[in-house]
Design a protein around this nucleic acid. Structure first.
Lengths: 132, 132
DNA sequence: TCTTGACCTTCCCATGATTGGAAGCCCTAA
DNA sequence: TTAGGGCTTCCAATCATGGGAAGGTCAAGA
């Protein structure tokens, strides 16, 4: 399989496959005589793993750890669970931040009549009724 | 006021003040004879507006629009409200995505006993029980 | 008056993950 | 043989922010 086929089979774009290889997340692909990268089922499976982990929002360095654990027969599931729960925590932190922003804004927007008049509690919150 | 004082007074770092000026979000600051940027209460108020808008997660291009509306006596509050609600929508979209990730991961982690054994539903979800 | 330390200036680089594009080589089908 | 699509590498941009270097400026203290 060439990189394009591996991309289709794994759901990871060819660009990203090359990038993941360049940063060492995945091993260097074998090459044909003419220099084309060559992939088999095994490599596609790894790419799919990476894809799924990215879809779950794991940052690349954590995916590196997950890949290592995946390949370690003597792993402790506790290590995997810790990585997952740490990531959940970081997600929830960001969610809480964004939810606070959204709540504040929704509240301000509710108080804004939203018509042709200039009076606006949103702008008043941001910096006062009129620009200086 | 020099840029450092304006930074302290507004909560925007000196680095960011220069950056906002360079991209045209805020007007170019006046300069002293020796080339130092010079700020007054008016400029600090603008910076505070930008700061508050950033804290609410508005992207810079939207802050540009908000600043323009702030300075427009004939604005329609409807325009401000629309910008705010569009942003709320974009926040809620991202929140929903991240919440879905967190829910999936938390669910998988619950099913993972998290001990010294290698069996792990998290890894199984990502790519199967063992690396290829 | 000179020195010192804190400030300012511009310029470049890095982040993280991803996309886009350009220039040039390779492969296959017509 | 040619046309096209796919492959290669390299470079640039995203978005907002921080870090740092090299060099100029200012104010306080000796």
């Amino acid at each position: 399989m060439n990189i394009g086929d591996a991309a289709k089979a794994s759901g990871v774009s060819a660009k990203m496959i090359r990038y993941y290889e360049s940063i060492g997340l995945i091993p260097e692909a074998a090459r044909t005589d003419s220099g084309y990268r060559s992939y088999g089922a095994r490599e596609v499976q790894i790419l799919r793993f990476v894809r799924r982990a990215r879809d779950l929002g794991f940052p690349v360095p954590v995916i590196e750890e997950l890949l290592a654990l995946w390949g370690d027969r003597d792993r402790h599931s506790a290590d995997v669970k810790r990585l997952a729960l740490d990531h959940v925590e970081s997600l929830e932190r960001k969610i809480a931040e964004m939810q606070a922003m959204a709540d504040t804004l929704r509240h301000l927007a509710e108080a804004c009549c939203g018509d042709a008049r200039p009076d606006c509690p949103i702008l008043e919150d941001l910096g006062g009724p009129t620009a200086p």
